[in-house]
């Protein structure tokens, strides 16, 4: 059912990438991996993504900038953005949505909950 959905996972923590990649593939997504902001940007430009799961704190380009880029360009209108961040304060979450995110999940997260959110975004 999700065989054609394309997902980007961008995070600088290898363990997060490893676990999310496992979970997404299991659900049948096409998974793209980025270890930092610039890798994420390249993938966004090349691949027609359905969902981008973005960490906020990354060494080069942070999640906010990437999200803004996606939301500002008509070409990526179909790409939903989900922030996955350790920043869990009310203000942080508000800022995430203000940047244009479609969903916000705080770390540590429940894998089932996260997957449900990603699936919802794909509807």
């Amino acid at each position: 059912m999700n065989s054609h959905k394309r997902v980007l996972i961008a995070d600088d923590e290898p363990n997060i990438l490893l676990s999310l990649e496992f979970l997404m593939r299991k659900k049948g997504f096409d998974v793209f991996i980025a270890r930092n902001g610039s890798e994420a940007m390249e993938i966004i430009k090349k691949q027609k993504l359905d969902v981008a799961v973005l960490d906020i704190m990354m060494p080069d380009i942070d999640g906010y900038q990437i999200c803004k880029y996606i939301k500002e360009h008509e070409a990526y209108a179909n790409c939903k953005v989900l922030f996955l961040s350790a920043k869990s304060k009310e203000a942080d979450i508000e800022k995430g949505f203000a940047t244009g995110a479609d969903a916000y999940v705080t770390k540590p997260f429940s894998t089932r909950d996260l997957m449900q959110r990603v699936l919802d975004l794909c509807q």
Binding site: S19, L23, A86, K107, P108, S110
Partner: peptide, 17 residues
Amino acid sequence: RTPITSIRAFSEIIFDN
């Protein structure tokens, strides 16, 4: 949060699979 996130994610993966 960072290590706990990893621990939780992998624990749940092992538990569910």
